[in-house]
Design a protein around this nucleic acid. Structure first.
Lengths: 199, 199
DNA sequence: AACCGACTTGACCGACCGGTCATATTGTTT
DNA sequence: AAACAATATGACCGGTCGGTCAAGTCGGTT
């Protein structure tokens, strides 16, 4: 049966966009099934629960992210500190494009889910945290490269990377609250001024 | 009937803690009523809809916030830049205390709600945005004071204040995702290094 | 004492929620 | 061609959702 893997994928795709542009709680299993043209029974053949679908969505989206604009922004051919400009740029255009299509700025799927489910589901929270750790690592490596290259003073790259990630998530949060991607454009550049000094 | 205002207040109180520690969608009207020892009918006597309750909760919590730890942290007797240390401290202890009691770090009610409802309810989003604008103003005034006092170089205080707010919200987001208030402690100090240069 | 408006009661509504299940229908293996 | 597991179907479950409503019960005013 060739459609099997496809069915599972259609469910994930339908859920991915909906979870991202609305919220986990607001999107029901029935709606996902209808949109993916799949029966309820088939849904529960592939996913033991809605929660397990969320896990699959997070995993896939993290992969999209890592191999998508994160990979582009963190292009090793670019000077390390310049990559952060690309990161902000990518976030800006992504959010802007989504808002122009949907009318509402969706924000970061991981940030959205993290604030929605963290207090209620430790496994989902851990999954989300793992995604952030991955992103932090990417930033940290870039910082280390910049230090090695001499373009910035030595710093606590681990904590600095986490702080920069926090800043990015905070910017996206404000942008979503204002429904305006310009926040990223106006404030994005300051990400490079965030430093945690080496202990 | 003296209990009237009290009933309304009990509803708001019950909702406030629940919305904060869980989410808007996850807390039902019935649960709020049960907890406040109020009948459904009474609830809908005071609030036309669950949404209107959310508005009341946001307004009241914003007031708690402004007159509570925000007011304490932004003590005019303190040197301006020192106030940010107090702000971070206050956030840290608040989150830590809540986590120690509830087992889960609740994060910022406004940030939580903003990411949950912004794409679905423009009025709620605007309310939340107004709270952030108020907070930003507070930070901006402090920055202006610091500049006037000569303790920091002149900067774009409006955008810098917004950037600092974004950073704070981002820190709380990561802290919630890790269920660990130490994030604020580790990374909080960098809030003072965030600058947007004057245009 | 009659009345009024603010508040309370609790049963009730249809819609929807996440999830289950027995029963097909497939493609693959033997 | 028989057998088997993977997948699909769609009716069905109890429970909960936000919200409504008619019928009260009060205190205060006239």
């Amino acid at each position: 049966m060739q459609t099997a893997i496809d069915t599972r994928q259609r469910i994930i795709d339908a859920a991915k966009t909906r979870f991202h542009s609305r919220s986990y709680a607001d999107v029901g299993v029935k709606e996902i099934c209808d949109s993916a043209v799949v029966q309820k029974g088939s849904f529960y053949h592939f996913f033991p629960s809605k929660r397990d679908l969320a896990i699959a969505v997070i995993e896939e989206f993290a992969d999209d992210w890592a191999t998508g604009f994160i990979a582009e922004a963190f292009d090793p051919k670019l000077p390390p500190m310049e990559r952060f400009d690309y990161l902000i740029d990518a976030a800006y255009f992504w959010q802007k494009a989504a808002r122009d299509i949907q009318g509402h700025l969706p924000g970061c799927l991981f940030g959205n889910l993290a604030l929605e489910v963290s207090t209620q589901d430790d496994i989902l929270r851990a999954k989300l945290n793992a995604v952030f750790i991955m992103a932090k690592k990417r930033i940290m490596e870039t910082l280390d490269e910049a230090v090695a290259e001499g373009s910035i003073e030595p710093l606590d790259s681990d904590n600095s990377a986490e702080a920069m990630l926090a800043y990015l998530e905070g910017l996206i949060l404000l942008a979503k609250t204002q429904n305006n991607p310009d926040v990223l454009y106006r404030l994005g550049k300051a990400i490079k001024s965030i430093r945690i000094e080496t202990p």
